[in-house]
Design a protein around this nucleic acid. Structure first.
Lengths: 340, 340
DNA sequence: TATCCTCGCGATAACGTTATCTCGAAGGTG
DNA sequence: CACCTTCGAGATAACGTTATCGCGAGGATA
């Protein structure tokens, strides 16, 4: 009850293994053995030490253990946002837990210096490995860490300037599926609105969409609108795509943020009449009217694979670098099946 | 380029301050001073050491630093779910960053043993403090940690068995506001569906709703439906509330999960005709038809306050335990203003 | 010129754990 | 009975940092 904090106002000193050893009347090494469940300790010593541990409320200091053994039992995940819907991160956490690894997650928050800060910090903490959803454009500064044996895995997009394992979705195939689906439902003019081509996935998806247009012998002009995801830019793109003299009758949106921005720009009435297939799952997609047809990434597979790649590299630092491409699947819900 | 890993297959040894000192031809202590920006080092020494650091790609080992200094510069957050929408956690991360603190976040995942495991692990890591969104019902096992000076703050609900700082929303007031709002829009029979009364917030909110009914001189029978949030239970509750001989014309839902389950049970048509005020903000609430009126918690304030309480306790372990109640606000969007 | 600071750097002891080695006792064998 | 092996526990040295102390050089003062 009394929060005895040793009068000096600072934090009280916690008991250490030395204190436990003194209390139990055994050697320091014996305490360590008991704490680590070493079977070569006699039962009477075990009980003496355990009694002392309970009496002093001893808890081993993980930092000292890590310093001595060299491993932390912790992997880092530098993702764009924790605290937002992020199924990959959930999969990473669950997989890591199953492997007995602790997860240290941090948000790079769409900020390159911050990403760098986080990654360097994780290296200083000597984490056993790092999974990163890269945001910055040049990660060459991590080469020394790689050389020093830090296992590193890229998720969702590759890293430039260094050669690391990577797991990502099949963006091109996803765009192709969306286009084909709308085409099969009778649409001849299909427009694309997506993220900036400065971003890797934005680049890949816009390119895939242009390829789909070409494959169907359609012109590209006025139909492909990559760019920053702001209300103004998206509304302008919608205006161009839908209100020309040869308006598009269907829409592919390049990621979740784009999808939501498009829905808000259109408003409920217009959105309910336009055929839309979104890239990325959207929360509450089933509650919208019509429910939203999307190309969903296998987010759980991506997260789990990231951990598996990381563990493989931890186990064998010299194994060849590998890129895993995860397929995507179409979720038919209504919005993508509207007629022109 | 070559990931020189020192032939043995294991991880190569990283250079330490000793190596840097040898390379620079100075004493170990001088390297430490340079790394810590100690101003009492001569400029020529600084440049010699910095050159050696760059040459060897030295990065200080944070674990050793922490062991020596005693502080980790890291606070822990044990929340129900990272990787889902969690504005409190986002606020915690941002506030912690602003204070120069690293955040270690983990999901308790609605699992009492797991919560316990996480909290104990954080204590073993000697974090500077812990914020916990409590799930389990008895946290007395943390008393030794408190006694040992571990700062601890509860978020969203109090902890039982120990006395710690706490920050939470004004649940009773929120329910009162929702009830009053529907009442003012002409509703005489208003039902409540919410989380189980085994959960703290479920208990508080159900109690507040009963109090509101009593204050308006209304009977309680058939109108208050706390319980587990499953489709079956919620649909049954809806059936009781809406299809009796004196059916409710409006609904208060007790948290986000309940709100979403109710919407799914009702289906779009019925949902569009029933007056609903939800407790908790819902993602995409503005895209629904009608848009959803909710009682929103000041999630950012809650997260920021949690960090502030934690820092205050870190600074002064003997300060009196404090509970901060944060007000809630009504977001009028449409669903709560429907007539009976 | 002798004395006293101040300043800047180096030697060395922690921090709390694990790993290596040593050593005594017990038990089996020739 | 001497010797070898095995087993369990203790002494002590790491791990990579920071903090305490000391010491020599240089300038100020009398």
């Amino acid at each position: 009850m009394s929060q005895a904090r040793g009068g000096n106002g600072g934090r009280p000193k916690r008991p250490t293994m030395v204190d436990v050893a003194r209390e139990a009347g055994v050697a320091l090494r014996t305490v360590s053995r008991v704490v680590n469940n070493d079977p070569t300790v006699g039962p009477e010593y075990v009980s003496k030490v355990e009694a002392a541990i309970a009496a002093l409320n001893f808890r081993p200091d993980e930092r000292a253990r890590q310093l001595r053994t060299g491993v932390t039992g912790t992997i880092g995940a530098a993702v764009r946002r924790i605290a937002e819907v992020n199924p990959e991160l959930a999969a990473i956490e669950q997989t890591a837990r199953d492997c007995g690894l602790t997860l240290l997650a941090a948000s790079t928050d769409f900020d390159e210096p911050r990403e760098r800060e986080i990654l360097i910090s994780m290296c200083r903490q000597r984490l056993d490995g790092i999974i990163v959803e890269p945001y910055g454009e040049n990660h060459a500064y991590l080469q020394p860490e790689l050389d020093a044996g830090m296992p590193l895995v890229a998720m969702d997009r590759p890293m430039s300037g260094i050669s690391v394992d990577c797991v990502m979705s099949d963006n091109a195939s996803g765009i192709g599926i969306a286009f084909h689906h709308l085409s099969q439902h009778g649409h001849r003019r299909i427009a694309y609105i997506g993220d900036s081509e400065l971003v890797f996935s934005g680049r890949e998806r816009a390119a895939a969409f242009r390829a789909a247009l070409r494959a169907h012998g359609q012109p590209i002009e006025g139909l492909v609108h990559p760019g920053p995801i702001t209300t103004e830019r998206v509304c302008a793109a919608l205006d161009t795509a839908l209100h020309g003299d040869d308006p598009a009758t269907a829409l592919v949106t390049g990621n979740m943020d784009t999808t939501l921005t498009v829905l808000r720009c259109l408003g409920p009435q217009a959105a309910a009449q336009l055929a839309i297939v979104g890239f990325d799952e959207v929360p509450l997609a089933d509650l919208l009217q019509p429910a939203l047809t999307v190309v969903a990434q296998e987010t759980f597979t991506i997260g789990r694979t990231a951990v598996e790649l990381l563990r493989a590299r931890m186990a064998d630092p010299s194994r060849p670098v590998q890129t895993v491409v995860v397929p995507v699947t179409l979720k038919v819900r209504g919005s993508g099946e509207l007629k022109p």
